[in-house]
Write a protein that binds this DNA or RNA. Structure first.
Length: 623
DNA sequence: CTTAGGG
DNA sequence: CCCTAAG
């Protein structure tokens, strides 16, 4: 928006869009859809209100986006928005339509999202048409558009794709809007046409993309993806130069021209951007995996969708308060309870950065190992995440995270394609089998891989975890991470997320405190209740999680006590950071109401003591 | 579905 | 965190 394109008249925001839509007079245009979409956006926006900040369902995202668009702040917001993850799609979605390619991509990506998204797609499509018509390249463009729509329908539910592009589309949309002017549209049309012609053999561009066999296209696809992926960079570029030119050039390269020279240029431009994870995945297995995944995704998507939607809804509630948890100084200093890598403090300060870095690192690793080709891309990442850091983290204990990611990735693939998945999984395993889990996972995955059903289930689960966005303030930062990750990596908000996410959601002290409070109130073992009352905000953190966490707390506390009293194992420095008050409380609670609520703890408590609680507790009990 | 427990 | 078993 900085550029402020008078031509578009973004200032008008929604109105403009509507105008655009209206202009085309095209009977075919699905005005209804468009209108609905707008309404929906408006509604969402209203619902969402100013909060917009963190998580939210796709709906929220849309609303927000719509809002942003209206305000004309979208462009500026870019970096921030990146964190939003799939939401952005919606936005982009709204804005899109100027460029055929964009529209197509969007359509694809969006299709998978939600009903709303589908609407959005249609709307976008309509937009595209309209614009095109306005420009005067009616026939060709329209046909393309229609085509796109058809394709969309056919290829519906490619979550993977959608996730991939979720972030990008939005940006594009913005760009398009900004740069939008009569001049551009013709080009886009031409591009489209060229693509079309080029792909004449295959029914559609999309198909081409999906087509595994098309070796020639792979490069183009790559390029295309990369361009898409690098929305941030693009934006920057746009801001600096002629937004239109840059975009167009990228598009052109991606779509019509497979020429190396042009592609190189594109790469150069894009290089600055950081590819999404999804993107990376795609790169790793440029087309085949992707397409396969896609297909798979479609089948499994439904489940994910339902689940994801659920989660999202919950999430909406989440973003309520931004309050930064004022931790007790003591606690704060200690901050992370179980965070091996990076202190919580750091995390809190630079929320996503650390995570991003990690992610990038992971990506890089996978990529690098997977294919040398992508080294370039990796380089891009480098600036964001220095190798050193990665190393360091890995050594420290980041391994877990890394591993998880890898593992996560594997599942997605496995879902998509058994063969491919295996291959990739292996890579991942090789890379980061630091954890026992990893090895286990690898084995398991392999086992399961064959069994699609299992994979699906897993995926489903993952989705739920992933999709959900943190509601709490504490979680917020995590949420942000996630979001960012989604966007940055791949925005696989849906699919990929499902595959990889689930793992590790760091427990913030506030969460721990809540847990403790809950335990103190309801006693140990009332996890579900505690969950409801204390963790209603956080979609994640199931009762099981609470239980596990409590277990860990007990362990930790026990350890601490031991350490302090007996000076024995202090090696567990890893989560040493636990605030003493918390530990104390944990201990008390543990002793106070061990399982049987009552204090008798002799029976159960004793048992527990033997394992978790330690001598101190035991002593107390005895006393 | 919830809990407990092991991995 | 995941998974499974048991109530």
């Amino acid at each position: 928006m900085e550029n402020g394109d008078p031509s578009l008249g973004l200032e008008d925001g929604t109105i403009d869009v509507e105008d655009l839509l209206v202009e085309p007079q095209d009977g075919h245009l699905s005005m209804d859809n468009v209108i609905c979409f707008d309404e929906k956006i408006a509604k969402n926006a209203m619902d969402v209100g100013p909060v917009s900040c963190s998580s939210g369902g796709s709906d929220t995202g849309i609303a927000r986006k719509g809002k942003d668009i209206l305000n004309g702040e979208v462009l500026n917001a870019m970096p921030i928005e990146a964190e939003d993850g799939y939401f952005r799609l919606d936005n982009g979605f709204c804005n899109m339509g100027d460029e055929y390619l964009l529209g197509v991509e969007f359509a694809e990506s969006i299709t998978n999202l939600d009903y709303g998204s589908s609407e959005g797609l249609q709307a976008s499509a309509s937009d595209c048409q309209i614009q095109v018509s306005t420009d005067g390249s009616d026939t060709g463009c329209r046909s393309d558009l229609y085509r796109t729509g058809d394709l969309r329908k056919c290829q519906t539910n490619h979550k993977a794709e959608s996730s991939k592009f979720s972030g990008t589309p939005i940006c594009r949309g913005r760009e398009t809007l900004d740069g939008y002017n009569p001049t551009i549209s013709p080009r886009s049309c031409s591009l489209q046409n060229s693509v079309k012609s080029r792909n004449s053999s295959s029914s559609s561009f999309l198909e081409v993309l999906s087509d595994e066999n098309d070796g020639t296209f792979s490069l183009a696809d790559k390029m295309f993806y990369s361009s898409m992926t690098k929305r941030n960079d693009e934006i920057e570029l746009t801001g600096q130069n002629d937004s239109t030119n840059a975009i167009e050039g990228q598009l052109t390269l991606a779509t019509s021209s497979v020429q190396e020279s042009s592609s190189n240029v594109l790469l150069t431009q894009k290089r600055s951007r950081k590819p999404t994870q999804r993107y990376i995945d795609g790169l790793a297995d440029p087309i085949p995996t992707y397409s396969k995944r896609k297909r798979e995704a479609s089948s499994s998507t439904i489940k994910d969708k339902s689940l994801g939607g659920k989660e999202r809804r919950k999430c909406h509630v989440g973003p309520k308060a931004i309050k930064v948890p004022p931790e007790d100084p003591e606690e704060f200093s200690v901050i992370a309870i179980q965070v091996p890598f990076g202190s919580l403090a750091n995390q809190e300060r630079s929320e996503s950065q650390s995570f991003d870095t990690v992610q990038h690192v992971d990506c890089r690793n996978s990529m690098t190992k997977s294919k040398g080709k992508y080294a370039t891309i990796n380089n891009r990442f480098d600036k964001h995440s220095p190798t050193v850091e990665f190393k360091k983290r890995g050594d420290c204990g980041m391994g877990q995270k890394r591993t998880d990611i890898c593992v996560t990735e594997a599942p997605s693939r496995k879902r998509g394609d058994c063969g491919t998945g295996q291959k990739k999984t292996d890579v991942c395993v090789t890379e980061a089998p630091s954890k026992k889990k990893d090895s286990h996972a690898a084995a398991t995955n392999q086992k399961k891989r064959n069994d699609l059903a299992v994979a699906v289930i897993r995926k489903k689960k993952d989705v739920s975890f992933t999709t959900e966005s943190p509601k709490k303030s504490d979680d917020r930062r995590l949420a942000v991470h996630q979001k960012k990750r989604d966007d940055t990596l791949t925005d696989e908000s849906s699919e990929e997320a499902s595959g990889r996410r689930k793992h590790h959601r760091l427990w913030t002290i506030s969460e721990v405190r809540k847990l403790i409070d809950g335990v103190s109130q309801y006693g140990v073992g009332r996890w579900s209740r505690i969950k409801k009352l204390f963790f209603a905000a956080s979609a994640h953190r199931t009762s099981v999680d609470l239980k596990d966490k409590w277990r860990n707390l007990l362990k930790a506390s026990g350890m601490q006590e031991q350490g302090s009293q007996q000076g024995e194992k202090k090696r567990n420095v890893a989560w040493r950071p636990l605030p003493k008050p918390i530990l104390r409380r944990v201990c008390e609670l543990a002793t106070m109401h061990p399982y049987p609520k009552g204090e008798r703890g002799a029976t159960k408590a004793a048992a527990r003591d033997s394992t978790d609680i330690t001598l101190s507790d035991y002593r107390r009990i005895l006393k």
